[in-house]
C-alpha cells in the first residue's frame, strides 16, 4: 500500500504536465482554426449580462441600463453601456464569419488586431445607428399609441424583407475587400471593411432592430431577431451547422494526435 501511494505521488507531476500540454495544444489549435473564438465568447458574455440586467433589476448593476421586461409600453432607451452590450450580443454572432475571413487574410501577428479593427468600424456604425433609431422610435411613439407603434414596426419589417434594396444589402454583408498587409494602411482597411459591412448590415436589419426597440430590448425578442438575422444570412440550418462545427473543432483540439508532443503526454 505504501508503494502504491508512493508511486501515485511520483506520477502526479507527469499528469499535471500532460494536462497542461493538452490544454495548451487545444488552445493553439482553436486559435489557429477558429481565430474569431474570442469574439464568440464576447458575444456569449454580452448575452449573460443582458439576461442578468433583465432578471435582476434590483442588482447594483441595474443603474447601468434601463431594461424592462417586455411590455406594450415603449420603455426608456437603454443607456450607453447597455447599447454597446446589445450590439456585441446581437451583432457579433452575425459577423463571426467575416471576422474569420479578415483574420485569414492578415499576417499571423496581425490577426487579432485586424479583427479588432473590423469590429471598431462595424460596431461604430451599429452603435451610432442604435442611437439614431432610438430617437426615431421615440418620435414615432409620441404620435401613436404603443401597440400601434409595435404593429407598425412589425409590418415594416415584413415589407422591408421583400424589398430589393434589402436583398442587395444582404448580399453585400458577405463582401471581402483587399486589405493592405502591414502598417497603418492595414488598420485603415480593416476599419474600412467593418464600416462597409456594418453599413450594409444596417440597411439590411434596421427595420428589424426597430422591432427590438419598440418591444423593450427584452432578451427573448432580441434573441429572436438575432436568430432571424443569422438564418437570413446563413440559411435555415445555420445553428445546427454551427453546433456540429463546434463539436468538430473541440474534438480536433482535444484529441488529434501530435507526434511533436506525444512524448510529453
Amino acid at each position: 500500500m505504501r508503494g502504491e501511494a508512493s508511486r501515485r505521488i511520483r506520477t502526479r507531476p507527469r499528469r499535471v504536465v500532460a494536462i497542461s500540454v493538452r490544454a495548451a495544444l487545444a488552445g493553439q489549435r482553436i486559435a489557429w482554426r477558429v481565430p474569431q473564438w474570442w469574439a464568440a465568447l464576447a458575444a456569449l458574455a454580452a448575452w449573460l449580462v443582458l439576461i442578468g440586467l433583465t432578471y435582476w433589476p434590483a442588482a447594483s448593476i441595474a443603474h447601468l441600463g434601463h431594461i424592462h421586461a417586455a411590455s406594450a409600453s415603449i420603455p426608456e432607451r437603454p443607456g450607453p453601456f447597455v447599447s454597446v452590450d446589445c450590439v456585441i450580443a446581437m451583432m457579433l454572432p452575425v459577423v463571426l464569419f467575416n471576422l474569420r475571413q479578415v483574420a485569414i487574410a492578415s499576417l499571423w501577428g496581425r490577426r487579432d488586431r485586424a479583427m479588432l479593427g473590423f469590429l471598431v468600424g462595424y460596431s461604430g456604425i451599429w452603435i451610432t445607428t442604435s442611437l439614431l433609431l432610438g430617437a426615431g422610435i421615440d418620435a414615432v411613439a409620441a404620435l401613436l399609441d404603443p401597440a400601434a407603434t409595435i404593429a407598425l414596426t412589425v409590418i415594416a419589417a415584413f415589407a422591408w424583407h421583400l424589398s430589393p434594396i434589402k436583398r442587395r444589402a444582404l448580399r453585400a454583408c458577405h463582401q471581402m475587400v483587399p486589405l493592405a498587409p502591414r502598417g497603418w494602411q492595414a488598420d485603415r482597411d480593416c476599419v474600412g471593411l467593418g464600416l462597409r459591412v456594418g453599413s450594409n448590415c444596417v440597411v439590411n436589419c434596421w427595420v428589424l432592430m426597430s422591432v427590438v426597440f419598440t418591444t423593450g430590448h427584452h432578451p427573448v425578442i432580441m434573441g429572436g431577431a438575432m436568430v432571424v438575422m443569422v438564418i437570413e444570412r446563413f440559411g435555415p440550418h445555420a445553428f445546427a451547422d454551427a453546433a456540429r462545427a463546434l463539436k468538430r473543432e473541440l474534438a480536433f483540439a482535444l484529441t488529434a494526435p501530435s507526434p511533436a508532443v506525444a512524448p510529453l503526454l
Binding site: L25, Q28, R29, W32, L107, W108, G109, M176, V177, P178, P181, F252, A256, P257, S258, P259, A260, V261
Partner: peptide, 29 residues
C-alpha cells in the same frame, strides 16, 4: 510581394499527425 517568415509553422507542428505544407498564390478581387 514582401514575404514575412512563417510564424505558424511552429504551431502547425502541433496540428496533427500529418500537416501538409503547401504554398498558395491568391489573386483577389
Amino acid at each position: 510581394i514582401e514575404v514575412s517568415p512563417a510564424r505558424a509553422a511552429a504551431l502547425a507542428s502541433f496540428a496533427g499527425a500529418e500537416q501538409p505544407q503547401r504554398v498558395y498564390l491568391k489573386i483577389e478581387n
